[in-house]
């Protein structure tokens, strides 16, 4: 039995401790926003936060989450109001959309640590997330835009 919180809600799961967190989130907790793409931490589709840090849940054993706070895409805002969600919608970033949960989760860590990222910062923060549809130019624009939205909100 492993206990942690997901999006603020305490959960206890019975999966073996070595089970990747991804499959616990999806198959046991039925939160399907976190995606499977490679199983080897190569594509970033499965990115979640553990205590605010980005983690590729496809390779992180669920035991790593014990006693910690896990945040998935479903938990970053209750109502699409996260600056990244706003920017993603404004710029119409997604195409197929499958990788976008992971993209947003990675971008969220970037913005939490750097409120005004440069293009180089975005390269450094986002190159772990593959988008086969090729939305990279829009992701870049949207991260800059989200930084602006955050700044505007902060100024209010």
């Amino acid at each position: 039995m492993i206990s942690f919180t997901v999006n603020g809600k305490p959960v206890t799961v019975e999966d073996p401790p070595s089970t990747p967190l991804l499959w616990v989130i999806r198959d046991s907790l039925n939160l399907t926003g976190t995606k499977y793409g490679c199983g080897m931490a190569l594509c970033g589709a499965c990115t979640v936060h553990i205590d605010g840090q980005a983690v590729r849940s496809c390779v992180a054993p669920v035991s790593r989450a014990e006693g910690k706070k896990v945040t998935t895409i479903e938990g970053i805002s209750p109502d699409l109001t996260h600056p990244l969600q706003q920017a993603w919608i404004e710029i119409d970033v997604p195409q197929c959309g499958y990788c976008q949960s992971g993209q947003i989760m990675s971008a969220a860590v970037l913005l939490a640590e750097n409120s005004t990222p440069s293009d180089e910062d975005i390269d450094e923060a986002m190159s772990g997330n593959i988008c086969r549809c090729g939305t990279y130019p829009r992701i870049r624009r949207a991260i800059h835009r989200a930084a602006e939205i955050s700044k505007q909100r902060g100024a209010k």
Binding site: S106, A108, E113, G128
Partner: peptide, 13 residues
């Protein structure tokens, strides 16, 4: 590492 690309993002213990 940096941001969401820290070593521990992918590398476990």
């Amino acid at each position: 590492g940096v941001y969401g690309m820290k070593c521990s993002t992918c590398h476990q213990v």
